[in-house]
Design a protein around this nucleic acid. Structure first.
Lengths: 334, 334
DNA sequence: CGGTTGTATTAAACCGTTTAAATCGGGTTA
DNA sequence: TAACCCGATTTAAACGGTTTAATACAACCG
């Protein structure tokens, strides 16, 4: 800026004001300055500016794993929403490791980030969120919640959603339905399992504890669990899967074992990823409102930044059942 | 820092030196300062520091699309490599839009990023890379190259790799092999097509121009192109796909049409994503060295930052063929 | 005891921007 | 004619660190 100022015989203050279209500077001066800036390829130094303004234009986003299409879809919608603002965002995976998450938050604080959207790692204590907030880093949670953290949360209504899938299988005539994947260590996990049990019990079906096969939420895991599922002593006719990845992996595993998914075994997914509709057979699944979650989380964070007071409420997005070919009436096998 | 300095009756210079473990300050003083800093929850202000040091600790990474597992795997290895350095990285998709890519580079310049790893968008002119370099933003290219840009490039040997897949099909007895997906607008695209044609011609097989169905590189696209493929006038018995996503989509499409992929039609992929081995049938594909590409690009960029002179050479990583169940001897159909 | 050496600390400049307050010259008004 | 106002611009002080030359002081030496 001082180069420009010197070249044009004005002060840096004028340059600063001119470049930001302040009405304080005369039109003619502004044009001269802007022209010259363009000509010499001036590059605005954001960190110098942010030192003064206390705004860095950086937002952080932490999720479990970007490679997981569920989060990827959320990220897409966050990206789309932020595109229209002047914010840059920094991404990180925490892989459910608390220390990774803490390191990242610390980095954000050091960079003077303006806010953070996070899907908290398993076991995140309320204090971690408070640390961020107290140091001027407003947070918004997605997908998972942290008890007692006074910040907005956006997530799907998991208990209700898994209920939709379970009810659908029951209404097709299935009785021995096993739930696959997930863990009790996340709020999401507890909600989904509870929703499944509740739906079964509403239909008068007893749920055996062995009717749950917990595990990682990957395609690979679903694939590998197929054997265990098929050889289960109760001969289940259907699987309610934690998510689409597991469901697709499971269907692949079932096919590999010589059975036909969607005929011999019914399978439901969760999330309704793009993939679900092109899987073979096309997967019956629950749309979880990823787009909506990302969009609204971003929106609310931007609101918080612009000073709008936001209630720290939990917003539950209502899932919808999308029926496709992976669920049919049960057939007896053995 | 001045808070700490005042509280302890020393100068900010001493605090600065102590916190960075300078040998200039006495051990006892250092400890007092560090303890106090920890106690009051001091947060290092990176932007203030970078103003003086001209190092921001930020690296940029731009690829076509993070959601594409091929890039996701590269990102993973970049992340792993960078984890050990003190650099944070910022990610962006360009979706092959030049203006998006330019905006991002501009953002990096404004943030004073220390370097950028990029898989350049289609049509990226040499000048764009030079702009970055001239403004102190060293670049390293991955997956694709830009003619005349004097920077290091890491990519797989596409012509050789696709040749492996093509030769494999030919040796199984296939003669009418169609290439699916990709575009001539990227260097990768040209190399792969050339490799396919070369392999065919080496085997004395004429390639008809209609034996190429270009298109997007997504599962969806592969799925949708199945009809066109199956009804091709030359009754192809095998498909060499641009990548695993297309191959898997195509196999799903073939299955949907009532044929059995891996029996009626042989299919090869490219990239060897995790998914390839659990697809049904398991996909024969070409491992493209994603891990290696990411790791080495990150390594070289870090080298450049620490002042080590790096030759701007193209490094070709040798792909390997992984044979699985999606390729078998041809069967005649009609 | 003056001079040298070495260690610990500090003052001050600097990085590039923003902004509140001050300045300046010219026009208006009482 | 003095007082005041106005728009355009400048001044100077932040913002929070890093860096380097300078300083203070103690110990050692001959």
């Amino acid at each position: 800026m001082s180069t420009i100022a010197d070249a044009l015989g004005v002060s840096t203050a004028t340059v600063s004001l001119a470049l930001r279209d302040s009405p304080l500077v005369a039109d003619e001066t502004r044009e001269r300055i802007k022209d010259h800036a363009r000509q010499i390829g001036y590059i605005y130094n954001r960190r110098a500016a942010s030192l003064r303004t206390r705004r860095s234009g950086i937002l952080g986003v932490v999720v479990h794993d970007i490679m997981n299409p569920f989060y990827a879809e959320i990220l897409r919608s966050i990206e789309a929403e932020l595109d229209r603002s002047r914010q840059t965002f920094i991404l990180s995976n925490h892989y459910d490791q608390l220390d990774k998450q803490r390191t990242f938050i610390d980095t954000l604080l050091q960079l003077g980030a303006d806010g953070v959207i996070m899907s908290p790692a398993i076991g995140t204590p309320r204090e971690d969120i408070e640390t961020a907030e107290n140091n001027g880093l407003p947070a918004v949670l997605i997908a998972r919640t942290v008890k007692g953290a006074g910040v907005p949360v956006f997530r799907g209504d998991d208990a209700y959603g898994i209920g939709l899938a379970t009810n659908h299988l029951i209404s097709l005539g299935h009785r021995r339905i096993i739930m696959i994947g997930g863990t009790d260590q996340t709020s999401t996990g507890r909600h989904r399992y509870r929703g499944y049990v509740a739906a079964m019990e509403r239909a008068g079906l007893r749920v055996d504890p062995s009717w749950r096969i917990p595990g990682p939420r990957t395609k690979q895991a679903g694939f590998e669990v197929a054997g265990q599922f098929l050889s289960h002593k109760d001969k289940p006719t259907a699987a309610v899967c934690w998510n689409d990845l597991i469901a697709i992996g499971l269907m692949n595993g079932i096919a590999r074992a010589g059975l036909v998914p969607g005929v011999d075994i019914s399978v439901t997914g969760y999330d309704d990823l793009e993939e679900a509709s092109i899987a073979t057979p096309a997967l019956t699944t629950v749309w979880n409102g990823q787009r909506e979650v990302g969009r609204r989380a971003a929106r609310v964070l931007l609101d918080r930044l612009s000073g709008i007071e936001v209630e720290p409420t939990q917003e539950l997005i209502k899932p919808e059942l999308h029926v496709r070919q992976s669920t049919t009436q049960p057939v007896e096998r053995d």
